[in-house]
Write a protein that binds this DNA or RNA. Sequence first.
DNA 1: GCAAATTAATTAGAGAACTAAAGAAAAATG
DNA 2: CATTTTTCTTTAGTTCTCTAATTAATTTGC
Lengths: 189, 189
Amino acid sequence: MTKDEPHLPHGLASRAEHNLSALKTMSTSDKIEEVLVALRRVIRATDLHSKKLVKTASVTGPQLLLLQIVNAKGDMTISDLARDMSLSQATVTTILDRLQKRELVERVRSDTDKRKVHPRLTDHGRKILSTAPTALQDNFVRRFRELDEWEQGMIIAALQRVAEMMDAKDIDASPFLDVGALDRAIPSG
Amino acid sequence: MTKDEPHLPHGLASRAEHNLSALKTMSTSDKIEEVLVALRRVIRATDLHSKKLVKTASVTGPQLLLLQIVNAKGDMTISDLARDMSLSQATVTTILDRLQKRELVERVRSDTDKRKVHPRLTDHGRKILSTAPTALQDNFVRRFRELDEWEQGMIIAALQRVAEMMDAKDIDASPFLDVGALDRAIPSG
DNA sequence: GCAAATTAATTAGAGAACTAAAGAAAAATG
DNA sequence: CATTTTTCTTTAGTTCTCTAATTAATTTGC
């Protein structure tokens, strides 16, 4: 978003094509630079999108994530949820408070163990969830669908690879931090 | 889901080959599912990394981002910074306040236009910056470097493509992925 | 030249997210 | 039954983020 750098959708496409052929003559350090820049762009873009989402969906990012997880997995405890979201219990409690106040979620105490609390979506919560996150992905999905098969395949393979390299990093590079959370770094959604 | 697979550093390349061939017989909707899952994994991983970083770097995500931008581009105004970070001026001002109180940054008023303020890194700020974010990327970079050339190229091209599809989406209406925070998450490594 | 409009940054006020630490209640242990 | 552990909530404090109102400096129009 600098003044001199126009960020036009067209320019981007042709730049990618150009890069594709240029990649072959590129030094390793240049490639590393490229991959990091591209990665940041992806992260940046998702970041902006999630912000935008929050405005349209009437729930915040963490709130939506909570709803999604509760919806996907059935009866869970607060600690389960905290682990899944990589947040502290206390944080989950407060997020839950707000969602409960808006009646998107209710708390059900366990019969077998009365310390435990099972968050459950209300009808309203389910409705929010069903409208919000599908609209979310539509645009990317539409574009992805339009790609050639080979390109779809390439993108999937590459993203899996990147995810893999990052997951791995988490595991063997953790100096003193708890690794437990990382085991379940990927919620099945 | 990908978690039960053994994840061996050497096996990486051959597994990619395998995935690549499996992709050819995959339905479009399966592919879409795959790409979204992979994307979430990537985002998730970077999210966790940025959290971890914050603990070691003694600055928060937005604070680090600010330092990075100020470092990269020279004299900028608060509004430039706000635009670059996709935040409001007011938000940037308060983040800057905190950084200034810790003497990582100083404010220099412009000579030519005294309304303008140029944030500048102090030595201490530069030092924080130089230690913090490199550690983040190191691991990914190391792994990336070990890949075959064709695979490096593939990953770069794919990420660029994805970023492109997301950038473009920015312009037309609807939003996209969820994922909490990252908030302000840090687009690094 | 000077009043009016614009621009740049700050301040004020408020909601949300986050954490650590302490507390309360229930269950498990011995 | 007393102690310990587990599970969740509360509390207190920081940060992030926004909008709206404010102050200061510059530019524009007459």
